[in-house]
């Protein structure tokens, strides 16, 4: 049977319709700054992944004949006071930065999303407890917290590892670098999760009461369908934006902690401890400071512009 329309059907103005994601991608690709940022991040990521094949020298190999060299053909970024190739060390520093940023942001975002969603969805006492945790964490100065965790947990952990090595002779326990990374990851994730939790909680709270969720309930749709097709897709945009900005933030934090000596410790190259070393001799050998600092700056600026670009691309209402 054919339907009898109430009035003549309104013709769609144009048929070419794109999905919101593709639409967002189009908008993002029109944003020159965001595209440039994406390119910078992609190059840095490739450098991080293929670092071992790109470095002309071992990042640890010292050449005492060639100390504090200015940039030249053999050493594009020069050498440091131990005669190590700065270019190779910056490349390894990129690895460190990316590993720390991705793992830390991954842990923090997962923790935050789960706790935030639980708090937002169930409300009541659970909500209050989670929010109390975020408030408490955010009210303690970040650096102080990390310093306290490192100072109090590192010696016992190192001792524990040594004792285990004595007992088992398992070479795994001889490597104290693991302690470094675990502590850096753990403490940074601990200070970085609350913003994600707050964001997701706010999203869930507002979306749960959106008329379209009520409309979906009125249609008799089940809770899992409502959560998976209505709540999550509508809260994912801000999360992507937050994660993009968070990656840059995590890199800066890692460098800051390494700079202060509570992060990744030498001899593992990190931009932060390279900047710290370079700062002491910058009057005579400015390249030692400039190389890691410029790369760090480039990376964080790129992440922050990408975050901005994503924000505009994923919120068509704001840009229209």
């Amino acid at each position: 049977m054919t339907a009898q329309p109430a009035i003549a059907p309104l013709a769609a103005a144009d048929d070419a319709t794109v999905s919101l994601w593709r639409d967002a991608w189009t908008r993002l690709s029109r944003n020159k700054l965001a595209v440039a940022s994406l390119a910078v991040i992609a190059i840095l990521a490739l450098v991080a992944i293929f670092g071992p094949w790109l470095t002309p020298y071992d990042f640890l190999s010292q050449d005492l004949e060639a100390r504090n060299l200015s940039p030249n053909w053999a050493h594009p970024f020069g050498t440091d006071e131990l005669g190590r190739d700065v270019f190779s060390r910056v490349i390894y520093g990129t690895r460190t930065a990316f590993v720390v940023a991705i793992v830390v942001t991954g842990i923090a975002a997962t923790l935050g999303v789960v706790l935030g969603a639980v708090a937002g969805y169930f409300g009541g006492l659970i909500d209050r407890f989670v929010m109390w945790c975020t408030d408490t964490t955010m009210s303690v100065p970040q650096l102080l917290l990390v310093v306290v965790i490192n100072a109090s947990l590192k010696p016992p952990l190192v001792n524990f590892m040594e004792a285990q090595y004595e007992l088992t002779r398992n070479p795994f326990f001889r490597n104290s670098i693991i302690v470094d990374f675990v502590l850096v990851f753990g403490s940074m994730a601990l200070i970085l999760w609350p913003p994600y939790a707050r964001l997701i909680r706010a999203q869930v709270l507002s979306i749960r009461n959106r008329p379209y969720v009520t409309a979906a309930r009125a249609l008799g749709l089940s809770t899992p369908i409502i959560i998976s097709r209505y709540v999550i897709p509508n809260s994912i945009g801000p999360l992507i934006v937050a994660i993009s900005a968070g990656l840059g933030n995590a890199m800066v934090l890692e460098s800051a902690f390494s700079f202060l000596g509570v992060g990744v410790n030498p001899p593992i190259p990190s931009w932060g401890n390279m900047i710290s070393d370079g700062l002491q001799v910058w009057r005579n050998h400015a390249h030692l400071l400039a190389a890691p600092a410029i790369v760090l700056g480039l990376a964080t600026v790129a992440f922050s512009f990408l975050g901005d670009g994503l924000n505009d691309a994923l919120n068509p209402k704001g840009s229209k």
Binding site: L20, Y212, R229
Partner: peptide, 28 residues
Amino acid sequence: DEKRMRPIRRDLQIVFQDPYSTLNPRMT
């Protein structure tokens, strides 16, 4: 409860005031 309501919701429907917010923006 919500589960027993589900088959009944088929018969009893609603159209809301604000057409701008009752449709999921991510669905065609």
